[in-house]
Design a binder for these strands. Sequence first.
DNA 1: GAAATGACGTAAG
DNA 2: ACTTACGCCATTT
Length: 132
Amino acid sequence: MPAKKKIATGNAGLRSVIPTGLKDLDFAEQVYEIARQIPKGRVTSYGAIAKCIGTGKSARLVGWAMSVCGKVKPKVPAHRVVNSAGVLSGKLAFKTSTYMEELLAKEGVLVKNDKVVDFKKRFWNPSEELSL
DNA sequence: GAAATGACGTAAG
DNA sequence: ACTTACGCCATTT
């Protein structure tokens, strides 16, 4: 019964980057809000974010939201979000195919063969850390 | 409107 | 660890 908690973001700019009548602007806002709270040097997964929001099974939608996050301001640390296997599945969406890995390395997160090293230890669970 | 697509996830072989 | 298959849901064709 703890219905989803609405997070006030005021992402007015988001409207302009989303094409036609997007229904889940609300969803996207929450995804970004959580993503921005990922501590430096930590990573999380799409599914974890989806679960934290409450949609649970809509991990794909989190990925979709991230695909347009590059146009959103303030900037979203999308490089800290990987899939459940710890793979940098979205690295191709960055400026260069190595940019995502570089950003992570810069924050102390080592990436080997497109996968986060010690992913389990680096994993940051929003549902727990945000005390939801 | 049906079929395909996708920065996903879990289960099974 | 890798591949196949299925479920999920908004967007695109």
